[in-house]
Amino acid sequence: MEKTPDILCIGAVLWDIIGRSASHMRLGSDVPGRITRLPGGVAMNIAMTLGRFGMAPAVLCATGRDAEGDALLSEAETFGIITDYAYRSEDLPTDRYMAVEGANGLIAAIADAHSLEAAGAKILRPLEDGRLGTLDRPWSGPIALDGNLTVDLLHTIAHSPLFRAADLRVAPASPGKAERLLALVGHPGVTLYVNLEEAGLLCQCEFSDSSAAAMGLMQRGVTHVLVTDGGRAAADGLSGDIITHCPPSVLVTRVTGAGDTFMAAHIVSERAGMDRATSLARAAKAAATYVSGDTPL
C-alpha cells in the first residue's frame, strides 16, 4: 500500500561517490584519503534531512531496475523516505555523482544524471494519475524541486496546472546548472535557494554579498529567495525585504550536501510556523553543523 507523504522531493536520487582528503589539493594532486559511497542527489539529500527533522518525504525520481537502484531505494527507506512513487526504468541505469574534496573545499565533481534527464516527465506521473493529485485536484503541499531536471521539464512545471497550488522550494544542482532555474522565475509559488555564485550566474553579474544577491534576484522577479555564502552571512529576501544571519564558525570537514541541508532545515522551520529570522538562523546552524561532520537535528 502506498504511503501518504507530507512533502515531495522531485529530482536526483543517486549514489554519491565521494573522495575526501585532509590535505589541501590542487589540479593533479595525488593524496591519501577516504572514498565513500552514500545515497545522494539533491532530492535525496533534502529528503534525508527532512526525515531526520520528523517529516514524511516522498521522492519522485528515476532509478534503474538494477541492483544499484534496488540498494539505493532500500537505503532511502531506512531514512524514513517514501519510495513508492519512484519511476523505475527497465533500460536506464541508476545515476551517480562523483566528487573530490580536500581541506580547501570541493576540488571537482561530475554528476551523471543522464537517467533522470532521459526519464523526463515520467517521474511526474503520480501527480496526475490520482496517486498524489490530478489536474482538477493538484497537489497543494510543499515540493522540494531539484535543478537537475531539464530546462524543458522545468518549463513544464512552471506552466503546468499540476503545480498551480504547490509551495515550490527550488535549488540548483550545481553552479553549472543554475541558469536552468530561470524557467521558474516569476512563478508566484517559488522559493529559490542558491549560493552566491549561483545567484550571480542567474543575474549574469557578480555580487559582493548575499544581501546584494537577494536584492538582485528579487529585481529579476523572484518573490522569495534564500542566498548562502559559505561561512559568511546568509540572506532571506521576501517581496523586497531582506534579513541576514551569520552562521556559527565551525571546522569544515565536508561540503557536498551543505546547501541541501540548509534548504531542508529552512523548509521544516517554516512548516513549523517559525518566523523568518528564526527559520534562517536554524537553517544556517543546521548547515554549519553538517559541514562540521555532525548530523544536524
Rank of each mutant, 00 (worst) to 15 (best):
A43D: 01
T228F: 00
D66F: 00
A258V: 08
D30Q: 08
H155E: 12
E75A: 15
L192Q: 02
Y290M: 07
G69A: 07
T223M: 11
E179R: 14
I7P: 00
L181Y: 06
P188S: 07
V185W: 06
W139D: 06
D241V: 15
Y290E: 04
T4H: 09
G28V: 02
I82N: 05
R125E: 15
G141K: 07
E77K: 07
I242L: 05
T94G: 01
S115M: 04
L201C: 13
G40L: 03
L162M: 10
R125K: 15
N104I: 06
S269D: 05
R276T: 10
S160M: 03
M263Q: 11
L168Y: 10
E117T: 11
D275T: 08
A235H: 07
R282P: 02
T228E: 03
S23Y: 13
E90H: 14
A47Y: 05
A119P: 00
G200F: 07
A214G: 09
F207V: 06
D152K: 09
M48H: 11
R96D: 13
G102Y: 08
G147C: 03
L297G: 12
E68M: 12
P247E: 04
A103Y: 14
M98I: 15
E90W: 10
P142V: 04
I267C: 00
S279F: 01
C246P: 03
A288N: 04
D16W: 03
L92V: 11
G273Q: 03
L60M: 11
A283S: 06
A212W: 02
G120L: 03
T63A: 05
I81M: 03
I35R: 13
F207L: 09
H187T: 10
A264R: 05
E117G: 06
L182F: 12
A212H: 10
G237Q: 07
E117Y: 08
L8K: 05
G51W: 00
V170F: 02
D91S: 13
A118I: 07
G240E: 08
E197K: 12
A286S: 11
R26M: 12
I17P: 00
I243S: 14
R34N: 13
I242E: 00
K122M: 13
T49D: 13
M98L: 15
A286R: 05
F53D: 09
I18N: 01
D16H: 04
S89G: 04
W139Q: 08
A108V: 14
N148P: 07
G19K: 05
V291S: 03
Y87T: 01
P39T: 06
W15F: 14
A212M: 12
G230S: 12
A111S: 14
P175K: 06
D136P: 00
L192I: 09
M274E: 15
I243T: 15
S74V: 08
T261P: 00
E117F: 05
T295R: 15
L201F: 13
I7V: 14
R26Y: 13
A76R: 04
S211Q: 14
S29A: 11
A118K: 10
D95E: 09
A233V: 12
A258Y: 02
A103D: 15
P39W: 03
G33D: 08
